[in-house]
Design a protein around this nucleic acid. Structure first.
Lengths: 246, 246
DNA sequence: CCGGGGCCTTGATCCAGCGCAAGGAAATCG
DNA sequence: CGATTTCCTTGCGCTGGATCAAGGCCCCGG
């Protein structure tokens, strides 16, 4: 379910619209989110407009083509960003991780659906509220634009992957790119968590679920990776990098 | 060749860094480019920083991973934006048309190579110069950000195409999207110019040149399109739209 | 007007990844 | 704690698009 905590149960006086007991100051993703470019006073300003929002596994944060009423900072958990073809074929455009900003294009309507892959915590802002803040703080817009540039680069990388890589290259490149994204948000490890299912990976890589499963297990048998519950351990990084052909 | 006209041959006093006799005021793409959000005085300011640059067919405006020294407005002609895999496989990320802005992510390095598909005219700005203008004019940044959002939407559309569409759907969707882009820049017509070759289309759609050729000719034989030199006439739009499955 | 090169088309064959089907493992629930 | 469901794996045959190969067309230059 979608839960917008209008009230804060524990320490109401310190709770700014339900985010946490101490607000943005001790926000887990403050330093890796767009908020990192804000001064303390600006942060308070933004905090006054924020709403804490949690979401259970499988539930939808917003749907493709819906009016974009809110924008979100992902605090915890992961989401799947998808587009559908009329006949039901699905493309997973990407996965949102902690620190990611959803709705950064500030467009009228969401261009994808966002669904929780597990329990998710977000920080929500009304689109109008946020637009007003941006109007007054060009450096926040600048930061958003930088993120948009990064997203564009990721999208291009993904197009190259979808258009010109083989199934094995796709899977290897995906695992490595996921590792890089975790590293970026301070979660470096050779064991990469896979919060999404096989079907989600398949729909992200332009493959079928069977092909993804076959290749992951082949990589496991070849000792390039080690499949573990809920993730993969990247055993032979150099080999994976050679496979990914990037 | 790459020609940066430092001097203007005809009416030097009216020629602002070689753009044209009357500068931005009568620029062909002023109303469809980022410049459309600028006031007349701001336009003059930007004009002082601009350089006219022309490029012959087949030549490179900038290369992937090069330091991004300049940003460009495309005035006339079309460019191919590509990324390469180490082994030479190529993905065409898109095509730049008049009114498009190249380098809008304002990143350190170009993420693609840009090559002229025919004679091209551009308006060049030094990246530092342009960044300074942006610093002073938040609404220009806002406009750039909107364009980035649009690019992101196009990229997502393309990912869906590459990942989940059949060859025929890809070709049909490509022709329709090209028609839409021409319409956007005021060049509405059922006859769509194809400034790129078959190989470029193939590398854009994740297909081979043979498949693109076969499908175009099949569509022609089926009277869905009419192949003409340098373009396609979209004869049966409803059928193409059904084919594209969007 | 002729020759060469770049593009495009078309046919024949092949194969990477798909689709189908049948289990197996593991999370969820009454 | 057994039953149900959901997700994952694996085998097998098939096929859409790739690959290989051979011309054809058209533009450009001499």
């Amino acid at each position: 379910m979608l839960v917008d905590t209008g009230l804060c149960e524990r320490t109401p006086q310190a709770c700014h619209h339900g985010r946490s007991e101490n607000g943005c100051a001790d926000c887990k993703v403050r330093l890796i989110s767009v908020c990192s470019v804000l001064e303390p006073t600006e942060l308070e300003e933004l905090e006054a407009l924020s709403h804490h929002l949690t979401l259970d596994k499988g539930h939808t944060l917003f749907g493709q083509d819906e009016p974009a009423g809110s924008v979100f900072n992902v605090i915890e958990g992961a989401l799947r960003l998808t587009r559908l073809l009329p006949d039901g074929r699905r493309q997973v455009m990407g996965f949102a991780l902690p620190g990611d900003f959803l709705g950064l294009a500030l467009q009228e309507r969401y261009s994808v659906s966002a669904e929780a892959l597990g329990p998710v915590r977000t920080c929500r802002f009304g689109r109008e509220d946020f637009a007003a803040v941006i109007e007054a703080k060009p450096h926040l817009l600048r930061s958003l634009h930088e993120r948009a540039g990064y997203e564009l680069t990721l999208a291009q990388e993904q197009m190259l992957l979808l258009g010109r890589r083989t199934a094995e290259e796709k899977v290897a490149a995906f695992l490595l790119s996921l590792r890089d994204r975790y590293a970026r948000i301070g979660h470096s490890s050779v064991t990469v968590e896979l919060p999404m299912g096989r079907q989600d990976m398949a729909d992200h890589l332009g493959l079928t679920i069977e092909t993804v499963s076959r290749i992951l297990n082949r990589l496991d048998r070849a000792h390039a990776v080690l499949l573990v519950p809920g993730g993969v351990r990247l055993v032979d990084l150099p080999r994976l990098e050679r496979m990914a052909a990037s």
